[in-house]
Design a binder for these strands. Sequence first.
DNA 1: TTGTACGCGTTATCAC
DNA 2: GTGATAACGCGTACAA
Lengths: 340, 340
Amino acid sequence: MIKNTARATIADVARQAGVSKATVSRFLNHRDTLLSAEIAERVEVAVAQLGYTPSPMAQALKRGRSRLIGLVVADITNPYSVAVLRGAEKACRAAGYLVMLFNLGNESQRESAAIQALLSYQVEGFILNTMGYDAGVDAARCGKPVVLVDRLHQGLDVDFVSLNNKQAIDLSAQHLLDAGYTELLLATEPLGGVSSRIERSAAFMSFIRDHNEKVSGCCLASDAGAADLDQALRALRERAKVGRAAVISSNAVVTLRIVAAMARLGWQLGADVGLIGIDETEWSPYVGPGISTVSQPTGELGRKAAECLLDRLQGRDVAPRTILLPGVLNVRGSSDPSRR
Amino acid sequence: MIKNTARATIADVARQAGVSKATVSRFLNHRDTLLSAEIAERVEVAVAQLGYTPSPMAQALKRGRSRLIGLVVADITNPYSVAVLRGAEKACRAAGYLVMLFNLGNESQRESAAIQALLSYQVEGFILNTMGYDAGVDAARCGKPVVLVDRLHQGLDVDFVSLNNKQAIDLSAQHLLDAGYTELLLATEPLGGVSSRIERSAAFMSFIRDHNEKVSGCCLASDAGAADLDQALRALRERAKVGRAAVISSNAVVTLRIVAAMARLGWQLGADVGLIGIDETEWSPYVGPGISTVSQPTGELGRKAAECLLDRLQGRDVAPRTILLPGVLNVRGSSDPSRR
DNA sequence: TTGTACGCGTTATCAC
DNA sequence: GTGATAACGCGTACAA
């Protein structure tokens, strides 16, 4: 194994090229500030020979710019977060930034610690997809730009990128209604101040109110155990005696819980109880008769988030923007038994 | 919104406490080197008042230690990688290290760039779950410890943590055999020099040889399109005229492809063709009659990888270790039609 | 156009 | 015990 080949420093390059460090630095940073072509040549060669790359650490220390962006996700296990992450990371990389990822593993009390850690590494801005228990505030307080994804933070008036929750819920509910389901249940994780959950519930209740002659429904916001969920589904079907019952699940995690409950109850997806879930996944088409979904434009959400941030990093100081992207309906057997 | 509160520096603390920077530094780093209790008190108070935290950047610059670990994954979309990542990140964090994640998005040519980027941020070591196209070598060349997860790199003799592929394949094949399947197919992505794929294929062929009186089988290593996969499955079933046919898929991605093919062909999982996949997923129990799997101890794999690295970071210089963890069988309907 | 000298925030080595 | 001081690798006034 070859030994510790210490990284070449700017001093090494300077020596090799027979110039001063300042000259090398200038060559690297502002090539426009014309240096004699001959010197430039010499430096260029030296850089190539030594395989020199500037130390971002030292650069960050000197100018405060680290070319680092902090990305905090509540739960990396959630495919939604990963998909958004991919889009954001790609956009940041294209702009010459490196993303430092911090995963909370659903321990929201670690949020402040995460921000602090990232802050200490001089990240220039944040993309936050977290619970928002007053942690993003720390970031904003330091004057670093912040973009929120999917979840608003109380008292934080910054750029926000998200699925258009109202549109997505309306799309789902209207589809269910069109498919002949009349008794609806929105299943979500406990609201707990998470804006997307709250918005989806509100949109759902609003839809129900607006269509109360044709359909009725209610919300189940809980992390309740299996027994409780089974009970809720039984009750739902009970209520639907005259019509047909269906569930809208507010994300992929909940969708899987509903599927598990249906399996326990021995009910057929679509036939016994309809189901449509927000969040498209790779497995949606293959579970039972296929699970209907509303796909989020996750890659695009991530890209937009990154764009907002980069925008501000380049100095544009505009009013906080809210970017809402529409979901797309994927109809499958779980909301249309005729399909299988 | 409150303005740019610049981070407090060690100099600020020193001034506030009426001591020198050196004293503050000593207080922070080696508290053992006794300082007068009175001074220690003063510094402690000043640190608290100013909410001072050392700048990892400056520390890294000075001592070369960044408390950063570079983690490169081939594809963050792969749940396996994410699960390993979680385990590793947790262990690193517990040891006071921050993980910098780099996702290749399956563009293996970016591997070298990733290592370079991470290297420039002075990461102290690497955990690599990548194709291994001679990139880890860069890392090792710099004398930084490297741990490989799941995939060996040619010419890189370092710590290696992985599923025991032979055990996992034997477990799968034996189970299929016990369940009455006699014509087996191992479906994998193109081998392409990826050690885990190669090992799984080899273990499979070895199993077939060792049990050739009871069972026969072959490998399908391809990223072939839908038509080709369908064709391969038809051929498989053809060969199994006298007995029953089953597929072992070498990871979750391939499992989903097989499921899709079965759906296209209108065949029943388990009854028409058996299936068992390496990699347990959250959806396995709910696709068709449930998909049998071999779960990898992903969290543990990540933890072990981190431990190996931290070990060397603390100076232990031992011979490269190979840690193989066993898989666990989850029998479901896809390999045991009686279950549903 | 190019080089010198200083400072970014730390830590380590010396004196005191 | 404690305080100057130099250095880590870099960027940039300033002088030349």
